[in-house]
Design a protein around this nucleic acid. Structure first.
Lengths: 204, 204
DNA sequence: CGCACCAGGTGCGCGCCACGCAAGTTGTGG
DNA sequence: CCACAACTTGCGTGGCGCGCACCTGGTGCG
C-alpha cells in the first residue's frame, strides 16, 4: 500500500506488476470479450515496457494478468472486516466493510464487465473472487470467536459472501440496471448474512 | 442418463466423452497433484482410445477434461431440487436434494481431492462447482415464486449453496476428518439456508 | 433395400505460449 | 568501493489449441 514503506527493489517490482496488469486489462477491454484471443503476450509486455519473458515472471497466463486487479481487491476483504469496530454485529460489519471496499473508488465498470462476461476468463475470475474466502473466513472466525478448524460457519459464510459479491457485480453490470453498486451489494449480502452466528449454526 | 433414449450417434459421442474424461482423471490421480504437468494430452487420448485431435474436439484443455465429472454433477443440482415435493420448505428441500445427489453414490474421494487440492486445477474446479448456480437459481426461483430478473435472493442463495458444497467437500477431505460427507453437507448448508425466503429478503 | 448426406474421427501443420537456463544489469549492505 | 543478491532479458525447447481437409460410418429418405 504505502510505497515508501518499501525499498526501491520492492517499489520497482510492484510498479512493474501493476504496469503489466494494467496493460493486459486495457488491451483486453479494447479487443472486447470476443477478441481476447487476439491479445498476444507480446503486445501486453510491449505496452508495459518489459520483455515477454519478464511478463511471465509475474504472471503465468494472460488470464491471470487480466484478472489480477480483482484478485488484489479480494485479498483486501479480510483486512477490511478486521478494521470494523469490534462491537458491531457480524452482518453489519461485513456489509459495511464490503461496501466501503467496493465503492471507494467506484469500481471500473469496463474491467469488471470484461472479466465477468468473457468465457475464457471465467475460471480466472472465479479464482480472483474466491481469493477473499481464506482471509475473510479468518476474520469472521476472529470476530465471532469461532474455531476455523472445527466450525464450518466461518468458511461457509466467507464463501457465501464472496458469492454474493459476485452475483451483485453481475447484476450491477446488467444492461437495464440503474441502481448503485452499493445498494445492490447491501441487498445481496443481506440474503446470506445472519444477524450473528446463531448458536445452532455452530457445530461440535 | 438414459442411454437408450439416444440414437447410436449420441451414445457413441457420450461414451467417447466419458472415456476421455475418465482417462484424464485417472491419469491425473496416478501422477498426483504435483505431477499434473507430466500428464500429456497424448497419454489421455491414447488411454481413452482416441486420437489427440479428437480429445480436443471434446475438451479444450486437460483441466477441463479432468474436472468434467464434477461439472456434470453440478449441472444436476437444479433438477434434483425440482424433484423434491412442492410443499417442502426451501431449506429442507435444498438440503435433501444436495445430500441425495452427493451421497448416492458416495463421491470418488481421490477424484475430489485431485481437483480440489491441485493449484493448477483451481480455476477449472471453481468453474465446475459454479455450474450448479444457474439451474439452481432457476429452481429456487420457481419454488419460491421469486423473479430471477428482479430478486437477488435466488441467484445469491444458489451461489451460497454452491460455495457451501465446496467448503463441505474441502472439510470432508481434510486428513483428520471422520464425519460422513452427508453430515458435513447438512451442517454447511444450514449455515446459509434460511427457513424460507423471508419477505424482507425479497427486493423491490 | 440402396443411396446420398452429414456428423464425427483423424492427420497435418501453424502459431503461440510457458518455462528452464545462462548471461547481463542494477539495487543493497558491509 | 566491492561483493552479493535480485531482477531483466534472449534463446531454445516441448507442448498445446485449433483450423483445414479428408475419410468413415450412422441416418433418413425414396
Amino acid at each position: 500500500m504505502n510505497d515508501d514503506a518499501m525499498d526501491l527493489r520492492a517499489r520497482n517490482r510492484q510498479a512493474t506488476r501493476e504496469a503489466i496488469s494494467h496493460s493486459a486489462l486495457r488491451l483486453a477491454i479494447e479487443q472486447g470479450p470476443h477478441g481476447l484471443a487476439m491479445v498476444r503476450v507480446h503486445d501486453i509486455a510491449t505496452a508495459a515496457g518489459v520483455s515477454p519473458r519478464t511478463y511471465n515472471n509475474y504472471f503465468s497466463s494472460r488470464e491471470e494478468a487480466i484478472c489480477s486487479f480483482q484478485a488484489d481487491q479480494s485479498r483486501r476483504v479480510g483486512q477490511a472486516l478486521r478494521s470494523r469496530p469490534a462491537g458491531e454485529p457480524l452482518d453489519q460489519a461485513v456489509i459495511a466493510a464490503v461496501v466501503e471496499l467496493y465503492t471507494d473508488p467506484e469500481p471500473d465498470k469496463a474491467g469488471l464487465r470484461m472479466i465477468m462476461s468473457t468465457p475464457a476468463l471465467e475460471g480466472e475470475a472465479l479464482k480472483a473472487f474466491s481469493m477473499a474466502e481464506g482471509p475473510l473466513a479468518e476474520a469472521i472466525a476472529a470476530r465471532t470467536g469461532a474455531d476455523l478448524s472445527r466450525d464450518l460457519f466461518p468458511a461457509v459464510t466467507a464463501a457465501a459472501v464472496a458469492g454474493a459479491i459476485r452475483v451483485a457485480g453481475r447484476r450491477w453490470l446488467e444492461p437495464g440496471n440503474t441502481d448503485a453498486f452499493a445498494a445492490i451489494l447491501r441487498r445481496a449480502l443481506s440474503c446470506v448474512l445472519p444477524a450473528g452466528p446463531a448458536e445452532d449454526q455452530r457445530d461440535r
